[in-house]
């Protein structure tokens, strides 16, 4: 059995809302999760139970109260929960990719540049990155005439496909997917399934929240709940 790519141990995340009298919302109460390369783990909890919170916590977008998040990074192992900003930025550049539900759009940056940006962080030369970007945008059926425009004016489905392109363009060893097929039609969903399968094949370890049952059943190698037993 190979080394796990991602190990989450005893992860606790509680939100304290100081602006609302200090009420506390404990969302993650000791989450454990191990993911190996080639796996795609689907989180089964109902909406609002913390799936996004877990994904964001793994990505260091949320700060956990306690617990460990150990990733295989740069040939070694690193506990992200204790890491400083510099290490976290390095992990985000080279080890963990994250596809959120929303595309954060910066006006004036063309779609193609948005999509290839993760490759530039890997040091890939611009021409090679552009080629890969074009191929992926084609595969996701974004028309070529949109490639030089900023996604600001795109429809929800188009934005989501740009989001996916950006998320899948680099060969991240770990991928976090938060509702990747949201806003997509059945053809779009089929492409998502393909992308995930290709990523698994190259050895990526994937954790995702998949609201759509078809997609989930097509891609998940394992299904778990945050605080319960593993389900087959």
């Amino acid at each position: 059995m190979t080394e796990p790519a991602l190990v989450v141990e005893g992860l606790h995340k509680t939100f304290t809302l100081h602006t609302q009298g200090g009420i506390q919302l404990p969302v993650l109460r000791g989450v454990d999760l191990t993911v190996h390369p080639g796996e795609c783990v689907a989180l089964m909890d109902p909406s609002g139970s913390g799936k996004s919170t877990l994904l964001r916590a793994i990505y260091a977008n949320y700060r956990p109260q306690c617990g460990r998040i150990v990733v295989a990074h740069d040939g070694g192992r690193m506990d992200m929960a204790g890491a400083g900003p510099r290490e976290l930025l390095a992990v985000r550049r080279r080890t963990i990719g994250y596809v959120s539900q929303f595309l954060r759009v910066i006006p004036r940056v063309p779609t193609l540049d948005v999509v290839i940006e993760p490759l530039r962080a890997f040091g890939m030369p611009r021409e090679a990155a552009l080629e890969r970007g074009r191929a992926l945008l084609e595969r996701l059926r974004i028309p070529e005439r949109l490639w030089s425009l900023s996604p600001v004016t795109f429809s929800g489905g188009e934005q989501q496909r740009v989001n996916l392109a950006r998320g899948f363009i680099a060969d991240f060893p770990i991928l976090l997917l938060d509702e990747p097929s949201a806003s997509l039609d059945s053809a779009g969903r089929a492409i998502v399934v393909e992308l995930i399968r290709d990523a698994r094949k190259r050895g990526a370890a994937i954790v995702g929240a998949f609201h759509d049952r078809e997609v989930r059943e097509a891609v998940a190698t394992r299904a778990v709940t945050l605080h319960g037993e593993e389900a087959a």
Binding site: F15, R56, A60, N61, Y62, R63, P85, L88, L89
Partner: peptide, 10 residues
């Protein structure tokens, strides 16, 4: 202090 998105989102 922290990563920008973390400080602003959490």
């Amino acid at each position: 202090s922290g990563l920008t998105d973390q400080v602003l989102d959490d």
